[in-house]
Simulated assay, not measured.
Amino acid sequence: MKQKKSTILIVDDEPQIRKLLKISLEANGLKPETAEKGREALRLVASLKPDLVLLDLGLPDMDGKDVISEIREWSQVPIIICSVRDADQEMLKAFALGADDYVTKPFNPDVLLARITANLRKAATAEAGEPELVNGRVKMDLVRHEVKVDGVKVDFTPKEYDLLRYFLVHRGKMLTHRQILHEVWGPAHGDDMQYLRVYVSQVREKMEPDPNKPDYIITEPGIGYRMEVVEPV
């Protein structure tokens, strides 16, 4: 089964740059997606929901700063500018519009990867208050998208991972079926109760000591589920 990887959207009109970045990102366990134009990038940010955007300012159909402005109307995804424009005013404008970081071309791939990792970690911390979520035997690394149970790495599918993350972020709270489906699958799946039961069962199989008598994800009959707060082992 495929494990969830951080998705990085590369927005650049130069094929050589896109190819170089794809190779570098894949070699470091990241999932690259690409766009050549600003409008294409905006559509992909909405549909793919990437974990980070690498954005060139000089795009053929619109200025990169306008792309930042439009993304920031509805998303806080980390944006790293990767551009030949190195004037202070350009950088300041990009930061004022909501860019998180700036790397000037030609760039050192190792430096860029370090910036990507730092911004992914910052975003994970902003989401959950910390880059790792720990509950008893379960530890989730929000940057590497890894889950360990009793210190052993366990493979979760992307949707199983998203469901477990939602439970861990909201551990101790009672969550309704509709609330979980809306937040993890989207508004169109608000009534897919059987779908949710199947995925909860799959997650339990991978992290509960006894999936038939769960200690972590508890069923609230007729309402939803609750992830109990479990003391470290």
Rank of each mutant, 00 (worst) to 15 (best):
L163V: 11
Q179E: 15
N119P: 10
V103H: 05
L97F: 03
I116G: 08
H145Q: 15
Q89N: 06
P60E: 06
E220Y: 05
P50N: 06
R171V: 01
P50S: 06
D61T: 05
R72N: 08
V233N: 05
N108H: 04
K4E: 15
S6M: 06
V233E: 09
K31Q: 12
P15Q: 08
V138P: 03
A46V: 05
E73L: 14
T125C: 11
K213Q: 08
V152M: 12
K153A: 15
P109W: 14
R197E: 12
P214F: 00
V147G: 02
A94L: 02
L112R: 00
K159H: 02
E36Q: 12
I23E: 14
A114F: 02
R226H: 01
I180V: 14
E231S: 13
A35G: 01
T117S: 13
S24C: 07
I10K: 10
A123M: 03
M91G: 03
C82Q: 11
K49M: 08
K19Y: 12
I116C: 07
P15V: 08
I217F: 06
K213A: 04
G151W: 12
R204K: 14
E183H: 13
D13C: 02
N119H: 14
Y216D: 00
K105Y: 09
V84W: 01
M140R: 10
G29M: 04
K213V: 05
Q76P: 01
F156G: 09
